[in-house]
Each structure stands twice: as C-alpha cells, then as structure tokens.
Computed example of a mutant assay.
Amino acid sequence: MQKAAEVNLAWALIEVVKPRLSLHERDFVFVTIGAGDTFAAIRQLLGLVVAKGIPLRPQFVHLCATWLDAYVGHDQERCLSRAIEGLLTPSSIRAATLTRTSSRLTARHGRPSAVDRRLGPASAPS
C-alpha cells in the first residue's frame, strides 16, 4: 500500500469511528496522523474499533487487511491480524448469538443466565 493510500485509510477510519471516540482518543489520532505516523494511528483506530465493538463495512475490513500486507514481519503484525480477523464477525452478530443462547438457557433453567445478567434487561445488540 502506498503512503498516500495509507493516509487515506487512516482518515477514512477516523470518519467512521469519530462519533464513538472520546475527545482524548480523537486528539491522539489526529496528532498522530499529523505527525506522519499513520501506522500508529491506524493501529490505535483498529484497537478502538475492536474494544468498542464499532462495526466496519466489509470494504473497510478488506482495506485494513490489504494495508497490513505491507507490514509482514512487523512486531505488531500478529496482533493487528487478529484484530482485523475479529472485524469479520461484527459485534452485533456476536451479541445476537449471545442473546439467543442466553434466552435458551433462561427458558431451560427458569432463571437469568450470567449472560442475561451482564446484558441487563431488554438489551438489544448495538
């Protein structure tokens, strides 16, 4: 991936996740890109996407995987690869699966499961 394409990916990721970032998180990413360290910015953004369960369109996930191809052998490659692979199963799908599973457990045992207690009453996948 060319440097210009890497910068474009960083800015595109920011636009997607910006509404879910704190002021500190946004400032950090903006300053990091402004300083020219797009690798660190994208790494930070991917970490935030995973940590906050922010869904990305498949095209973005593909762009992130293509971007990572340029960093084969980098000490962060394995961690970033797992993060990108995790994006292939959106959190909404994981949450829906947990909700269905916990509902079956509740019906079977007549009391809320641990998942139900964590999700709270009438939780909907985000």
Score class of each variant (00 low, 15 high):
Arg43Ser: 15
Gly36Ala: 07
Gln44Glu: 14
Pro90Val: 06
Leu80Ala: 09
Leu46Gln: 12
Leu45Ala: 02
Arg57Ile: 07
Glu85Asp: 11
Ser81Met: 06
Arg78Tyr: 06
Ser92Phe: 08
Ala41Trp: 02
Thr38Cys: 07
Arg57Ala: 14
His74Pro: 01
Glu77Ser: 08
Ala35Val: 05
Leu88Asp: 05
Thr32Glu: 13
Pro55Ile: 06
Leu56Pro: 10
Leu88Met: 13
Pro58Gln: 07
Val49His: 03
Ala65Pro: 02
Leu63Trp: 10
Ala51Gly: 00
Trp67Pro: 06
Ile84Pro: 00
Leu56Trp: 05
Val49Thr: 10
Ser81Leu: 11
Ala51Phe: 08
Ala35Cys: 03
Phe39Cys: 02
Gly36Met: 04
Leu68Cys: 04
Trp67Cys: 05
Phe60Gln: 11
Asp37Phe: 07
Ala65Ile: 05
Leu46Asp: 09
Ser81Pro: 00
Asp37Pro: 08
Ile84Thr: 00
Phe39Met: 09
Val49Gly: 01
Gln59Met: 12
His74Phe: 11
Arg57Val: 08
Cys64Ser: 15
Ala51Arg: 10
Leu63Ile: 08
Leu80Arg: 05
Ala83Cys: 12
Gly36Glu: 00
Ala35Met: 13
Ala83Arg: 14
Thr89Cys: 07
Ile33Cys: 04
Leu45Ser: 06
Thr38Asn: 14
Leu68Gly: 01
Arg78Ile: 05
Pro58Cys: 00
Lys52Asn: 04
Trp67Asn: 09
Ile33His: 01
Val50Gly: 00
Val50Cys: 07
Leu46Asn: 10
His62Ser: 15
Arg82Gln: 11
Gly73Ile: 11
Val29Ala: 12
Leu87Asn: 04
Arg94Thr: 13
Gly36Trp: 03
Glu77Gln: 15
Cys79Gly: 15
Ala83Asp: 09
Ala83Gly: 11
Trp67Leu: 06
Gln44Leu: 04
Gly47Asn: 08
Phe60Pro: 03
Ala70Arg: 04
Leu63Ser: 14
Asp75Glu: 15
Glu77Lys: 06
Pro58Val: 07
Leu88Lys: 13
Gln44Ser: 15
Cys64Thr: 15
Phe60Trp: 10
Glu85Trp: 13
Leu88His: 09
His74Leu: 03
Ser81Val: 01
Ala51Trp: 01
Ser81Asp: 14
Ala41Lys: 05
Leu68Thr: 02
Ala83Val: 01
Ala65Leu: 06
Ala35Phe: 10
Leu68Ile: 09
Lys52Leu: 12
Arg57Thr: 12
Arg43Leu: 14
